[in-house]
Amino acid sequence: MLYVKVKTEDGEELVLEVEGMTEDEIREELAKAGFKIEEIEVYEVEP
């Protein structure tokens, strides 16, 4: 499983499960949803 931890400019932290997306695609999708991203951390969790 691939997850991203996202910190927004307003200090909110989100953890999202993503599969088959690049970091650029993740940033693009979050921007479309109205999030202003300060930091993204991508990590993989073994089942």
Rank of each mutant, 00 (worst) to 15 (best):
E9S: 13
V42D: 02
I26A: 03
L2Y: 14
I26T: 01
E23K: 08
M21S: 05
E19Q: 13
G34D: 02
P47L: 09
M1S: 10
E19V: 13
F35C: 11
G11L: 02
R27C: 09
E38V: 15
E41D: 05
V18F: 15
E9R: 10
E23R: 10
D24T: 09
T22Y: 03
K7R: 10
V6C: 10
E25I: 03
E28S: 08
E38T: 14
G11P: 00
K7Y: 11
E44T: 10
L30F: 08
E38R: 12
Y3S: 13
V18G: 01
T8M: 14
K36E: 06
E46G: 09
E17Y: 15
E46Y: 15
V18E: 00
E25M: 06
M21A: 05
V15S: 04
G34Q: 02
E46W: 14
E28G: 07
A31G: 07
E46I: 11
L30H: 00
V42C: 06
E46K: 11
G11V: 01
I26S: 00
L16H: 01
Y43C: 11
V18D: 00
E23Q: 06
E29C: 15
Y3A: 14
G11C: 10
G20L: 05
I40T: 02
R27M: 09
V15L: 12
M21E: 03
A33F: 11
E29F: 15
R27P: 00
E39I: 14
T8G: 07
K36R: 08
T22D: 05
L2C: 08
M21N: 04
V18R: 04
E41F: 14
K5W: 11
E39M: 11
I37M: 10
G34R: 02
E13W: 15
V18T: 03
G11F: 02
K7G: 03
A31E: 10
G20R: 08
G20H: 05
E38C: 14
V18I: 10
L30A: 02
E23C: 14
E25T: 04
I37P: 13
V15Y: 14
V42Y: 09
E44G: 06
E13C: 15
E38A: 13
K5E: 04
F35I: 09
E17T: 14
D10Q: 07
F35L: 06
V6N: 00
L30M: 06
G34M: 02
L30G: 01
L2R: 15
K32F: 04
E29I: 14
G20W: 12
K32E: 04
G11M: 02
G34Y: 02
F35T: 01
E25Y: 04
E38Y: 12
L2H: 14
E29N: 07
E19H: 14
E12G: 10
K32Q: 06
K7S: 07
R27T: 04
K5T: 08
E44Q: 11
F35W: 11
E19C: 15
M21W: 08
F35S: 01
M21G: 06
E25P: 00
K5D: 02
L14V: 07
K36Q: 08
G20K: 06
Y3E: 07
K36T: 08
E44D: 12
E29W: 15
E17F: 15
K5G: 03
E13R: 04
L14I: 11
M21V: 05
G34W: 02
K32L: 06
G34P: 02
V42H: 04
G11E: 01
I37D: 12
K5A: 02
K5H: 08
G11I: 01
E9P: 11
L30R: 00
T22E: 04
E17M: 15
I40M: 08
A33G: 05
T8L: 14
E44V: 11
E38P: 02
A33R: 14
L14K: 04
Y3F: 10
V15F: 13
V18W: 06
E44L: 10
Y43M: 10
E39D: 11
E23H: 07
V45D: 06
E46C: 15
M21P: 01
A31Q: 10
E12Y: 13
E9A: 13
V6Q: 00
I40Q: 01
G34N: 02
E39F: 13
R27E: 02
Y43R: 06
E9T: 12
E28C: 07
A33Y: 13
V6D: 00
M21Y: 10
E38Q: 12
F35Y: 13
K36N: 09
K32M: 06
K7W: 13
Y43W: 11
K7V: 13
E28V: 10
E19K: 13
Y43S: 06
I26C: 04
K36P: 05
D10M: 06
E19Y: 15
L2I: 13
V45R: 12
E29A: 14
K36H: 07
A33W: 13
I26E: 00
A31F: 09
V4N: 00
A33K: 12
V45F: 11
A33Q: 12
D10W: 11
E25F: 03
E38D: 10
E46R: 07
A33L: 14
T8C: 15
Y3V: 15
